[in-house]
Nucleic acid binder design. Sequence first.
DNA 1: CCTTAGACGAGAATAGTTCTCATTTCCAAT
DNA 2: ATTGGAAATGAGAACTATTCTCGTCTAAGG
Lengths: 141, 141
Amino acid sequence: MDRQLDAEVALRLARADQRYTGLRRALVEVLAGAGRPLTIPEILQSRPGLSQSSAYRNVSVLVDADVVRRVTGAGDHGHFELAEDLAGHHHHIVCSSCGRVADVVPSPGLERALDEAARATTGFEVTEHRFDLVGVCAECR
Amino acid sequence: MDRQLDAEVALRLARADQRYTGLRRALVEVLAGAGRPLTIPEILQSRPGLSQSSAYRNVSVLVDADVVRRVTGAGDHGHFELAEDLAGHHHHIVCSSCGRVADVVPSPGLERALDEAARATTGFEVTEHRFDLVGVCAECR
DNA sequence: CCTTAGACGAGAATAGTTCTCATTTCCAAT
DNA sequence: ATTGGAAATGAGAACTATTCTCGTCTAAGG
């Protein structure tokens, strides 16, 4: 696994008073290697023997430590990916048929427009934006 | 309730081989009057006596008939609103603290940028885009 | 080593949502 | 109007993703 990523994750867990255990390292590895948001069942498949309760518990710890982010809006299962400042800012495209989620790298022009929209909003203190495309993936088509 | 909306909903339900019952009319009224996506508990509050199972069932019927759309990514409950072509295209801002969702009307420039991004995506047949802001609402702040 | 706080796994518990089924309502044809 | 059948309704059971509980085990620091 990437050394710098490893060190940054260790730092964030330490900040949250959490240990960087083998299981948590494994979760970070799986998510870093996937290149797209994964569900808990998908994570369990890639690490046979890992118990479901531990997967949920530790993903939750990683979310609280700002290492992992939960992605919603794609079928029944939550999807998980590395935090944006670890994996790079990107958006998602969701298949409306099978729920699969793929990463999309945005253009600078798009980002400028999105930030502008965030600034124009009143009444809320905007902290984040989400831009997802919805469509049908090649397999489902 | 708006006559044109009423007729359009009747048409869509007929297309889906569904009746436009009093309960379904009530649901459309509540959603049209809210001006923001509502959860099932919120809908139940505004129509006392309405049973939970009927609310879920009929909202689902309305979703299948393309009258209502489910909004995800805001807390534990799903939120429901009128379909975009009935209520007008808009985006949402979600309070990360309490889960409340408000509507946001986008600028033409933003829409142009979003459409461009959709066109640039390959591998998927893009049918829709979602752009949500996340922040903290005035009450929670 | 030993101690002890925390992590682990298995399964129970929870909560949002969907399903079942007995009853009622609605519509159409007589 | 009346009746027959198809669909809607409501109460509660069932389902499923997720979280919690608790007894056991691991591992870091003294």
